[in-house]
């Protein structure tokens, strides 16, 4: 059994782009991590000091705190292949996904 994923997602308010990022992330987590994750969503408009602390430049930004290495994934997470690379998920598992998920992109 692998370690639990610890993720932080920084967004700016309830914009379409923020919603897209959240939806895309939930979908990936649901399918690939099977509940083995903690996700914190931070709205930088409400907590700019947290964005300052992490030196967040762009939104949405996903930070993979655990497992190491620490990694930033910038964007609305619509590019699933890049998200998988960022989260160190096995690329070969992509092919086990139902085809519809990939076609959506």
């Amino acid at each position: 059994m692998s370690a639990k994923y610890q993720l932080k997602l920084y967004i700016t308010g309830q914009t379409p782009r923020s919603r897209r990022a959240i939806e895309n992330l939930y979908q990936t987590c649901q399918e690939m991590l099977n509940g083995r994750y903690d996700l914190t969503i931070i709205d930088v408009l409400e907590h700019p000091e947290l964005a300052e602390e992490e030196k967040i430049l762009a939104t949405p930004t996903l930070i993979k705190v655990n497992p190491p290495p620490l990694r930033r994934i910038i964007g609305d997470l619509s590019d699933t292949e890049k998200v998988f690379i960022g989260l160190d998920l096995q690329i070969n598992r992509v092919f086990h996904l139902p085809k519809g998920n990939l076609k959506d992109e």
């Binding site: 782009r17 897209r20 994934i73 964007g75 609305d76």
Partner: peptide
């Protein structure tokens, strides 16, 4: 890693 559209919000 960049994975989709974003802004400098």
């Amino acid at each position: 890693i960049f994975a989709g559209s974003y802004d400098l919000g």
